[in-house]
Design a protein around this nucleic acid. Structure first.
Lengths: 190, 190
DNA sequence: AAGTGTGAACTTTTTCACAGCT
DNA sequence: AGCTGTGAAAAAGTTCACACTT
């Protein structure tokens, strides 16, 4: 996606799987097979149109539309995400934030109000939410449970404790900085 | 790791691969095979000692020691990382930050000074650096190139453009919030 | 009895290689 | 001539199932 935009900026209109694969750090057959899963996107003897590939990929990945998010947990990372405008540019909008600590309730970050987690079902009556983002430092399970109970089917978990969904209807994406850095520390250690 | 600490807090001393696998959302045979790669850690008929497993895993993953980081790019995310104390608790220490914009040079965030990228080799004379963290919003390649040239072998790339190392001696870990959220948007789109 | 460690079977992913379109 | 789309082959990863240890 970002690579295609990069190519677009360089005014490259068409690209072969070979060249694109090099940009992505993968094998060209791999890339062709993956793209063929999206649809018949290339032209034999020519390659892929950067513009149309971007369009098709965007649709396929669900990035042609906008998505509504809620935040669980007013941590430094949570506040960072609310204040950061770049996710909005990508089509991801925070509509509300929730916390359990009384001192945080009622605060407003970049136009997003913080509600008590108790109010979740009440607030979700008024808005349609696609993704719940959990950034609390303690007890992420509380937010997971509450979000899933209220019908949120996609969870982005940025707390330090990895979460796993028993319900296959719910998709959880886990990420933590220390986990990512651990992969590098393992590499450095040989 | 975090799961083991969680168990420790619950005063669980020994755990079977079956139970631990449930906590990790994986198959128990998988878990046993993975752990056997680390060493002979379990006791037949009993299971794994949580404490000793944590110790062995920490060593294996290179997390028994501390690591020195440098930051490339004074973006909101970069400033967040410098100010956030939780990575220090995990043994990851930022020693210096680099930027190309004159207005940022000389600033200090949480005790970490911002230098001009030109000064990289000079600064690295004085300190040993393990991991370069790139958080710039534009031209992450500039930082990648400079870091790798100065012998940094592990790169954590948080810019929006994924990076790939041609040199197999260098390990790059890519992450972006929009990429992670895209996985969820794809899931929601079916 | 309980539960590890691990070969063997199975499944998935990746790569090769080439027929066929432009 | 150049490059895609895709079967077939190879490699990698996962699960089963059980001998063996405490």
């Amino acid at each position: 996606m970002k690579i295609l935009e990069h190519l677009e900026r360089k005014n490259i209109d068409f690209i072969s799987s070979e060249d694109l694969a090099k940009n992505c750090g993968v094998n060209s057959a791999q890339l062709r097979k993956d793209l063929s899963f999206v649809g018949t996107l290339g032209t034999k003897g020519v390659g892929y149109s950067v513009k149309s590939l971007k369009f098709n990929l965007k649709n396929f990945l669900g990035r042609a539309q906008e998505w509504n998010l809620i935040l669980g947990g007013i941590s430094p990372l949570g506040i960072f995400l609310l204040q950061n405008k770049s996710l909005q540019k990508e089509g991801f909008y925070f509509l509300a934030a929730f916390d359990t600590k009384e001192e945080n309730i009622g605060k407003v970050y970049n136009g997003v109000s913080v509600y008590n987690l108790d109010q979740l079902s009440y607030v979700l009556n008024a808005i349609k939410v696609d993704i719940g983002v959990i950034t609390t430092e303690t007890d992420p399970e509380i937010f997971l449970k509450a979000f899933v109970e209220q019908g949120v089917r996609a969870i982005f978990n940025l707390s330090n404790v990895p979460l796993f969904a028993e319900n296959p209807e719910v998709k959880i994406e886990n990420f933590s900085f220390s986990m990512a850095l651990t992969k590098l520390s393992y590499f450095l250690k040989e």
